[in-house]
Design a protein around this nucleic acid. Structure first.
Lengths: 136, 136
DNA sequence: GTAATTCCTCTAGTGGCTAGAGGTTCAAGG
DNA sequence: CCTTGAACCTCTAGCCACTAGAGGAATTAC
C-alpha cells in the first residue's frame, strides 16, 4: 500500500493536487489508516499516472474524468476515447492558429524602428488596433 | 463625457470588465455624477482602447499596466515598451512550440487503429506516458 | 523519549474576468 | 408629472486547476 507522499514521489503529482483530485471525485484512496492517513494500492498508482499523463496532454479535468470512467470497458468506450482525443486535437489546432496570428502581429510590432526622435511607434502599435495588418 | 455603457459600446470591453479594471487600479473614470455614475472623457476612451488592444495581444494585465504608465514619456519608455513586446513575443513562441508538440502526440494517438478486438489502444496511449514517442 | 518529517483539514489565493442579487438613477414616453 | 424600462450602482461568488499556508495530529528515525 502507498501513502499519499509515496504516490506523489512516484508520479510527480503534488500532494495537494492528489487531495484536490479526491475532493472533486476524480481519484480516491482505497482507504485510510487508523491515524486517518490515505492509502492507495497499485491500481491507484496506475490510475494516477493515467490522470497525470492525460492532464499533461492538456485534456481538461472533465475529459480526464470521462476517460477514467471508460477504463476496462467495451468498444463503445474505445470510440468514446477516440472522440475525446480528436476533439481535443482540434481544440489545440485552433489555439495554435490563434497564437501564430498573435506571433506575427507581435513580431511586426517588435521590429518597428523608432529611434528617430518621433513618438514611440512600438507603444502606439501595441495600443492601436487600427494599425494591425490583419485580424487577431 | 461618456458613461460606462458608452465606453463599453465604443470599445467592446464589457461593463463589468471596465469596473474590474477600475478595481485593480488600471483604469479610472475622471469623476462621478451626483447620482454616483462614472463618467469618462475622450482620453479615457483612448486609454481603454489601448488596454483592450494590448489584452487582445495576450499581454498580461501587469504588462498592460506598465505600458499604460509609459504613455507620453521619453525614449526610456520606448525601450521599455520594446522590451515588453519582445519578451511577450518570446513567451508566445515557447507556447506555440509546446502546443505543437502536444498536437503531434495527440495526432499520433488519434490515428491509432484499434478495431481488432484487443484492448483500446487510444485509451492506453492517452494514459501511458511510456508510449510517448517524444517528450511533451 | 524526542525531534523531524509526513500526514491531516480548512481557508483563501492565483489571473482575468463573469454572473447574479438587490437596489438606485436616469431617460423616454404617455 | 408620472410610470416604466433601461442603465447604473455595489457586493459576493463563481469559473478552472491548482497552490499556499495555518494549525494540529500521526508517523518515523535516532
Amino acid at each position: 500500500m502507498y501513502s499519499i507522499g509515496d504516490l506523489s514521489r512516484r508520479t510527480g503529482v503534488k500532494v495537494p493536487t492528489i487531495r484536490y483530485y479526491e475532493n472533486i471525485g476524480l481519484f480516491a484512496p482505497v482507504g485510510r489508516t487508523r491515524g486517518n492517513q490515505r492509502r492507495y494500492d497499485l491500481d491507484g498508482l496506475r490510475r494516477l499516472k493515467f490522470i497525470r499523463h492525460a492532464r499533461e496532454l492538456g485534456l481538461p479535468i472533465e475529459a480526464v474524468r470521462a476517460l477514467v470512467a471508460l477504463d476496462g470497458h467495451t468498444d463503445v468506450s474505445c470510440d468514446r476515447a477516440h472522440d475525446i482525443a480528436k476533439a481535443h486535437l482540434a481544440d489545440i489546432r485552433v489555439r495554435i492558429s490563434q497564437l501564430q496570428r498573435l506571433e506575427a502581429e507581435l513580431a511586426r510590432i517588435s521590429a518597428l524602428d523608432d529611434h528617430d526622435g518621433g513618438p514611440c511607434m512600438v507603444l502606439e502599435a501595441l495600443g492601436d488596433h487600427e494599425t494591425c495588418t490583419r485580424p487577431h
